[in-house]
Amino acid sequence: MSVVDAALVAGYTVGDFLLLAAAGFTVLAIGMLYRAVKGPTMQDRVLAVNVLGTNTVVILAILSAALSEPTFLDIALVYALLNFLMAIAISKFTVERGGVL
């Protein structure tokens, strides 16, 4: 029996708890969205999206654990790479216009 199916409280399993935690992380992501929209500087937005991306990687990983689909971790891995790339690309872009990549 895997940990996901282990009973926690009142008939709910660890998998259910992890799904709820993923929902909690998403709610926090919605909070961070405020900074991504408001700015005021471009770096504020990039920073907010970077934090959001890290949050999404955690959400994806938790979903993969909760749904017992280990292959979903690959998506989280791809996202972690892309998130880092995006932060670096945009912060380079705002410094030297035209000098992207």
């Binding site: 991504a36 937005r45 999404t56 959400i59 979903l63 993969s64 791809v78």
Partner: peptide, 29 residues
């Protein structure tokens, strides 16, 4: 425009997580 591009990146983060939840990892990737 740049703000829209950045926020659109955040949108795709949410979509990928949603596709993952619906067990469509290929679409999420």
């Amino acid at each position: 425009v740049l703000a829209a591009v950045i926020v659109f990146g955040a949108y795709s983060l949410g979509m990928a997580a949603l596709y993952t939840f619906y067990r469509a990892p290929d679409v999420a990737l």
